[in-house]
């Protein structure tokens, strides 16, 4: 435990130093990567550990984002409280949905969550207090003055999101290696056997759904901070797609893998930009190339590395000495 804390502090320190050395765009991408890390952790916890498929994590993020924005704008609360409310809102929503979801298996759960991912952002369009299409502003304010004039807004975002991501990862890794993590894996492996061992499987599934939603909500609030607003477009279906892709690339049941998955998700728009520049800079390309890359990656990894590229590598390494 103490080792783990030391590791995370070291990691944070290294990230801070890196944050000082790179330019503004990279700092922003770092903040986005931190956001994706949290969101992917929520999928790993839910799908990789408890074995429930959720295609609607974008919707959970939207709940968190709107919760945070409403808190910040209407109550004028401190930032940390807005993030806390994001977690609380998403967790409540997740618990409600999880109650229904715990009784669902595979296709039903996937379909229900997909329906949510399609519909929830659209609902935000319809209600005035959610700001409609343009959405709500989400302004965490300038960085504190004592950091000096050099300290930019994006670096402030980077600091906050990295800090939150580190805490979230630390807590998730603890939960996953606790009794709960083991029980979830048991349910995923064989739910009947787990029940015979005295596990209340539907209660544990609801718990997994709730914790996962809370994480997704937190990620949603961090996303809102990074782009300074919450709008239906920010939590579109494509976000849910990207997250599923990232989670599969991360190796769906590996928590350290989420950093790799997040890295890929941040890198894809960059790659698409570079490619679009080569292929002729049409509006179409900018709009659909990232989606194309994401889907091709998703399909290839689901077919050839369904448990993450890490597992293929391990298998490869293990096979060699045997020959």
């Amino acid at each position: 435990m103490r080792k783990k804390i030391a590791l995370f502090i070291l990691l944070g320190w290294v990230l801070l130093i890196i944050g000082d050395r790179v330019d503004e765009l990279r700092v922003y991408q770092g903040a986005q990567m931190a956001m994706y890390t949290i969101a992917l952790a929520s999928i790993v916890l839910l799908t990789g550990y408890s074995g429930q498929v959720s295609l609607g994590n974008g919707a959970m993020m939207a709940v968190g984002g709107y919760g945070a924005a409403l808190t910040l704008n209407n109550l004028g609360s401190p930032i940390w409280f807005a993030f806390l409310m994001a977690v609380v809102c998403a967790a409540l929503f997740g618990a409600l949905l999880g109650t229904a979801a715990a009784r669902l298996s595979g296709p039903y759960l996937a379909g229900t969550t997909l329906a949510l991912a399609v519909g929830l952002p659209a609902i935000a369009n319809q209600f005035k207090f959610l700001g409609g299409e343009p959405g709500l502003l989400f302004d965490v304010g300038f960085p504190p003055e004592r950091f000096g004039e050099e300290f930019t807004q994006y670096k402030w975002f980077f600091w906050i999101s990295t800090f939150i991501a580190l805490i979230a990862l630390f807590m998730t890794s603890n939960i996953l290696s606790s009794r709960f993590g083991r029980t979830w894996r048991g349910i995923r492996g064989h739910s009947l056997a787990a029940e015979l061992c005295g596990v209340h499987s539907s209660r544990m599934k609801i718990l997994a759904f709730t914790v996962s939603s809370a994480l997704a909500g937190l990620a949603g609030a961090v996303l809102a901070m990074n782009i300074s607003l919450v709008a239906p477009g920010a939590y579109a279906l494509s976000l849910s797609f990207a997250l599923v892709t990232g989670a599969v690339l991360a190796g769906i049941s590996s928590l350290p893998g989420v950093v790799f998955g997040a890295f890929i998700l941040v890198a894809i728009p960059e790659i698409a930009d570079a490619l679009a520049g080569r292929l002729g800079d049409a509006d179409k390309l900018n709009h659909y190339l990232p989606g194309l890359i994401v889907s091709i990656l998703l399909i290839l990894s689901v077919i050839y590395a369904p448990n993450g590229p890490g597992e293929n590598l391990r298998k490869h390494l293990r096979k060699k000495p045997a020959r």
Binding site: G51, I252, S295, I296, N307
Partner: peptide, 26 residues
Amino acid sequence: SGPAAVVAPVIATLGLLGLIRSIVGL
């Protein structure tokens, strides 16, 4: 096999949806 075997087909059709969408968009 593995933890992803159950979810792989569903996720694959999702990838296919994205693929077709991007191709149509392009």
